[in-house]
Design a protein around this nucleic acid. Structure first.
Length: 463
RNA sequence: GGUCCCGUCGUCUAGCGGCCUAGGACAUCUGGUUUUCAGCCAGAGAAUCAGGGGUUCGAAUCCCCUCGGGAUCACCA
């Protein structure tokens, strides 16, 4: 049975797209193998919690279609799925390690540790705890009994730690390069290291697929697994999404919160499709495919080691492809949902065919179609000297009886010829008169939708 | 700085010792369609496969070194 998980921390306003990227792989791997995909909230840092962050995160994940089989929302056999509700579990396990002499109490003050680190760095040594408390455990225990605050540290043995990564192969690290990690904080909360290891084990996670940033701490986790006497899950460390300057994707260079993309009218399907192409490619070279298809053919072993640059331009291209494939009815509903209920459905529906292939994201609709709902108040071209011209236009338009795009077009073409004005010039002036803009959906069709009276009114305004 | 990871067009990638005078996609540029903008169609430029050494009849593909980039070193995750 395959069980995967993502373990986000609610320390931001929403899910990071990078998290969605690894979530997608976890989801795909679980589903491909008829397993379960789990969401566990790692909220053990009380100082960095963002109110509402967890809720938004879970909602967004759900909204884009990455449904969890077990999570704080849907529950599951290993509940609770929120670490702050599992404190007793971690404490018990930490104490167990102390009993086994694999971990020890420490009451060293942060000031002393800081000073020590500074000294070590000054002589270019690896900053490491000096194990003072390890060598004075009995004395320390007495102080703790009397109420002294303490943490629990993991004892890192002096030996080579070797593990296999599904994506990167065998990785070796010397234990002597590692610091004795704090696994239980003085506030009783576990640190990440204890939390993940205990929960991944108890929740029977088989594949730990997570960001590359965790690679350096994986040896510490291995030590923990060994200290508990537990067998290891399989590890797969996925490369981090990058900014154009190759640094880790950050809000300075790109929107990083998933909701920021959804709010621009990027479709969840397109986002997932694009993200799936970061560090992985379809065996047939296809670029557009469904989540369902991805799940079927995804394989961890095909995941690339290099860290990809996240390209919002290609994302938008792909989103445009998705938009163009939609049925008018379905695009209409999406546009309506996006722009709000104040716009008349009938007109939105009629305008969709005119703009569908011009849109890259839902947010492109309104700038293109605003004029259908509101007469222009400003004009992108100065039309003040063209009163005579517009008078002629009004005269001809008034005589158009069947108000259809073709009839309007023919009448206007004829007038252009009569006036000896180039089509491009003629229609640009008319376009700006009707829409206010130099760029618009096809004019004749737009005028048809707008109705005769409305068009006449707009043109007359310029006479 | 220590440790670990990575290195094919601007970007995402294909490539798994001969099919590579390195393929596709986005972006860019040119032409066509045209009443603007898109879209669509056709085409172009763009990678000494980071560099240097090996191994081999043969290397983008295997090995070594150098360089470059990134991640990480907290009572943060």
């Amino acid at each position: 049975m395959v069980r995967t998980r993502i373990a986000p921390s609610p320390t931001g306003k929403d899910v990071h797209v990078g998290s969605v990227s690894t979530a997608l792989m976890n989801y795909a791997w679980a589903k491909k193998n008829d397993g379960q995909f789990i969401i566990r909230i790692e909220d053990t840092d009380q100082t960095r919690l963002v109110p509402g962050g967890e809720k938004r995160m879970l909602e967004t994940l759900e909204a884009i279609g990455l449904h969890a089989d077990e999570s704080p929302l849907v529950g599951g056999p290993y509940a609770p799925y929120r670490q702050s509700e599992r404190l007793a579990v971690y404490k018990k396990h930490a104490e167990e390690l102390v009993q086994k002499r694999k971990a020890y109490y420490c009451i060293c003050k942060p000031e002393r540790l800081d000073e020590m680190r500074k000294k070590q760095q000054a002589v270019k040594q690896i900053p490491k705890y000096d194990r003072y408390c390890y060598f004075h455990q009995e004395e320390i225990k007495n102080k703790i009994v009397k109420g002294e605050k303490y943490v629990i540290r993991l004892f890192i043995p002096n030996k080579k730690i070797i593990f296999n990564d599904l994506i990167r192969g065998q990785i070796e690290v010397e234990g002597s390069n590692l610091d004795d990690q704090i696994i239980l904080k003085s506030d009783g909360y576990p640190t990440y290291h204890l939390g993940v290891v205990v929960d991944d084990y108890l929740m029977k996670i088989t594949h730990v697929i997570r960001g590359e940033e965790w690679l350096p701490s994986t040896p510490k986790h291995i030590v923990l697994y060994e200290a508990f006497g537990w067998s290891l899950p399989l590890f797969a460390h996925v490369s981090l999404l990058r900014n154009p300057d190759k640094s880790k994707l950050s809000k300075r260079r790109n929107p990083v919160w998933t909701s920021e993309y959804l709010e621009k009218g990027i479709l969840p399907e397109a986002l997932l499709n694009y993200l799936s192409l970061m560090g992985w490619s379809h065996p047939e070279g296809k670029e557009i495919f469904s989540l369902e298809e991805y799940v079927k053919i995804f394989d961890i072993k095909d995941v690339q080691k290099t860290a990809p640059v996240f390209d919002p331009v290609k994302l938008e291209w792909m989103n445009g492809e998705y938009l163009r494939k939609l049925k008018v009815q379905s695009l209409k509903l999406k546009v309506l949902g996006f722009i709000g209920k104040n716009y008349p459905e009938g007109i939105v529906e009629k305008t969709i065919p005119l703009v569908q292939e011009r849109m890259k994201k839902l947010a492109d609709y309104l700038p293109l179609c605003e004029f259908f709902f509101q007469a222009p108040a400003t004009w992108q071209v100065d039309l003040s000297g063209k009163k005579d011209f517009f008078n002629r236009v009004v005269g001809v338009l008034e005589k158009v009886n069947t108000w259809k795009a073709t009839a309007i077009g023919e009448a206007m073409q004829k007038l252009a010829k009569e006036l000896n004005i180039k089509n491009s010039q003629f229609f640009m002036d008319l376009r700006v008169a009707i829409t206010g803009k130099r760029i618009s959906p096809p004019l004749n069709e737009s005028m048809e939708i707008l109705r005769k009276e409305e068009c006449l009114e707009r043109v007359k305004k310029l006479t």
